[in-house]
């Protein structure tokens, strides 16, 4: 390039402006760096492809095993892969039960706390309360499992007597609710705070009380954000492992009694893979089939939740 400039025929008029190359010069170093950075971004795509490929491949092997059919998988109520019983329902019902109890705690309490923090609390109170709730979100889940087993379960046994088994879905679900509460609270609070002040002022101007403004104006205005928080909370509860592995019980059990032990999808994966699980056995392959189920369910919920968040952002930003 440089050479080209110099060998240019000299311009007739020495006083005129020298020719400038406005074309971008290729810089090898810069291109290399950009290539590397793109690779970094692409690692996430590779991760997703890896998840889908591995889960899909091993699940296919699982469904090719003699005696496993999709229909049986989703309708039979016994799950013992080693002896040829492949009905995933008991694990699914246990997951739904723990999720249900978790939501029973997390959704109402999380939303109420969010309303309090966003609509009632003074800035000072908020600056103290919020970080404390955030600590709850930072506690590792295995610690919640410990809490469920050593405090919540004895407490439930005190309340309901010996019909409560040492491992039960109620205890795991309630503690999971406490774990998810901060998530619901902070996401809902974000949604509530994003509602323009003018809406509140208009409601006050019409004579609404603070409660009426909050419940009939602010909450409906932030509804898509709040529902997004709820959906994300459900997804979190379905994928949670350590609390249920410690407190919900080991061993599939097709029951709707919250006082009995029952193994969830994630609990099953954790138990089976706890030892040295041999490759290409029904146990090993079943981990992937169940993993695929979990991945699919949580992914759907997450996408739904993000769509809703995007919608309320569009409205107010």
């Amino acid at each position: 390039m440089q050479k080209e400039l110099i060998t240019h025929p000299p311009l007739a008029d020495a006083g005129s402006i020298r020719a400038i190359h406005l074309k971008k010069k290729p810089r090898l170093g810069e291109m290399f760096i950009q290539g590397f950075l793109f690779f970094c971004g692409a690692v996430s795509i590779l991760t997703t492809l890896g998840i889908i490929y591995e889960l899909g491949k091993e699940s296919l092997l699982f469904f090719q095993m003699p005696g496993v059919t999709l229909i049986e998988f989703f309708t039979r109520t016994e799950w013992q892969p080693t002896i040829g019983k492949f009905g995933v329902l008991p694990l699914v019902t246990a997951t739904l039960m723990t999720t249900f109890f978790a939501m029973l705690v997390a959704l109402p309490l999380g939303l109420s706390a969010a309303i309090y923090l966003s609509e009632y609390a003074s800035p000072r109170a908020r600056s103290i309360l919020k970080p404390i709730l955030e600590i709850l979100a930072g506690v590792p889940t295995v610690v919640y499992g410990y809490f469920a087993l050593t405090t919540m379960t004895p407490f439930l046994r005190l309340l309901f007597g010996d019909q409560v088994q040492v491992y039960n879905t109620l205890s795991a679900g309630l503690v999971m609710g406490i774990m998810i509460l901060p998530l619901v609270c902070s996401m809902s609070e974000d949604a509530l705070s994003a509602v323009p002040q003018s809406l509140r002022e208009a409601a006050y101007g019409l004579g609404g009380t603070r409660l009426e403004t909050a419940l009939q104006v602010v909450v409906p205005a932030a509804l898509s954000g709040i529902i997004a928080a709820f959906i994300l909370a459900i997804s979190r509860a379905i994928g949670e492992t350590m609390i249920v592995a410690l407190a919900a019980g080991a061993g599939p059990n097709f029951t709707f009694n919250p006082f009995l032990s029952a193994e969830t999808l994630t609990g099953y994966i954790a138990r089976i893979s706890g030892g040295d699980v041999a490759y290409d056995t029904p146990d090993y392959n079943s981990i992937f089939a169940i993993g695929l189920l979990l991945f699919g369910a949580t992914l759907l919920l997450n996408i739904l939740s993000r769509r809703l968040v995007a919608r309320f952002r569009e409205v107010y930003e």
Partner: peptide, 9 residues
């Protein structure tokens, strides 16, 4: 989306 995938996966 990856940020929301359960850790066990």
């Amino acid at each position: 989306n990856l940020a929301g995938v359960p850790s066990i996966v």
